[in-house]
Amino acid sequence: MTGLSSSKNLGKLDWLAALKRLAIAGEPVILVTVTSVKGSTPREAGTKMVVTAEDFHGTIGGGHLEYRCLEIARDILQKKPDGRARQRESFPLGPALGQCCGGHAEVLFEAVLAEDVEGLAPDAHSLLITPLTCGDGAMYLRALLDGEDIKGLPRTAMEAGREVFIERIGGWRPQVFLFGAGHVGQAVVRALEPLPFEVRWIDSRAEVFPGERPAHVRVEVTDDPDLQVKSAEANALYLVMTHSHQLDLEICERVLRRGDFAYLGLIGSETKRARFVRRLRIKGVTREAVDRMTCPIGIPGISGKHPAEIAASVSAQLLVACERVSAAQRRSREEEPGATDKSLLRGS
């Protein structure tokens, strides 16, 4: 089998970009989607992988399940390289498949043509509907209906007399405001590249930014970060690591006074933290607010000072902060049955 070493990690909507690029270029392509799971499985329902004859993009968890799905997808391509095809397979993840998860996964294999995807332009309130039976047409978007329950998505259901797979195509894509483009800032940007974040990278020195930047990063050259903090969405994440301690202090004060952040991390030592706490308290920032500032940054147990080590540790800390936000949003929805949390439906 070819292509096993060339998998590309895909973000929440990057699979659609890859699919469009390949299909519109005339490359025969299979979209592999995990449509349901039970018990312990490598990835959740809705996970996708884009497969061509020689390559693949994304992952559904690796191991024998992914290997077998690649074989099936390429077998479909070989038999029907120019036509439509849709096939469902069920996989018990036990000894027969060489995986010890013990769960169960159902997977959809779908041949996708350019006409199926070139018009797909999801917005913040889009649901992706994929028919599960060959002959029932291509995937399509529809708007989220008022009051529609999104707690059970993704899921299979009946719609317009057809069995379909329904999933949110957008979802919350956390904003990271990264202040500082030095060595650690650059390492953080590289570490966040495969992760589902939208990064605003801010520094007053245009010359310190690298020439090439990942697609998920927007650079802002400014001497005044106040507008950046004001423009942030609720539950944004802030990393402060500028070339100036005074500027670090001003940014932290603005974020703490705003209050609706998911994470505020300040690079530095325990000594720097103590100095900042004292100065922020003098400025009138409450003790409760100051206690929410993380300094030093990074998860406990990683003491390395190399930029790449700091970046890896901080990336993990940002993911933990996002999990806390998602858990709180899930609890909020469960307390109000049937209510749609619009904050979860921002486009990626």
Rank of each mutant, 00 (worst) to 15 (best):
E288F: 06
G301L: 08
D291A: 08
R281L: 15
A311G: 07
A311V: 11
G284S: 15
I282L: 13
E309A: 06
A289E: 09
I282E: 15
R281Y: 11
A316G: 12
R287Y: 13
G301Q: 06
P296K: 04
K305N: 10
G298H: 01
P296R: 11
G298F: 06
R279I: 01
I310S: 12
V285Q: 00
K305I: 05
L280K: 01
T294C: 12
I302G: 01
T294W: 08
D291F: 00
T294L: 13
R287N: 14
L280E: 06
I282N: 05
S313L: 02
S313M: 02
R287S: 15
L280G: 01
T286W: 06
A312F: 12
L280P: 05
P307L: 10
A308R: 09
I310N: 15
I299S: 03
V285G: 02
I297T: 06
V290L: 08
I297K: 07
K305Y: 02
P296A: 13
I299L: 07
A311S: 13
E288G: 12
A312M: 14
T286C: 09
V285H: 02
S303I: 00
P296L: 11
G301R: 05
E309N: 01
H306C: 10
I282C: 05
P296E: 09
S313V: 00
G298C: 02
R287I: 14
I282Q: 15
I297W: 01
V290Q: 07
H306E: 14
M293F: 06
T286L: 12
P296Q: 13
G301Y: 10
C295T: 00
G284T: 14
I297C: 01
R279C: 06
M293I: 03
V314E: 03
A289V: 05
R292Q: 15
M293Y: 02
G304C: 00
G284C: 11
A316Y: 07
R281W: 10
I310M: 09
I302L: 12
A311Q: 14
L280F: 04
G298P: 07
P300D: 10
I310P: 10
I297V: 03
D291N: 04
K283S: 15
G301W: 00
M293R: 05
R287W: 14
H306A: 14
G298K: 09
L280A: 04
G284F: 13
G304D: 03
R281I: 14
A312C: 11
V285M: 03
T294D: 11
A316V: 15
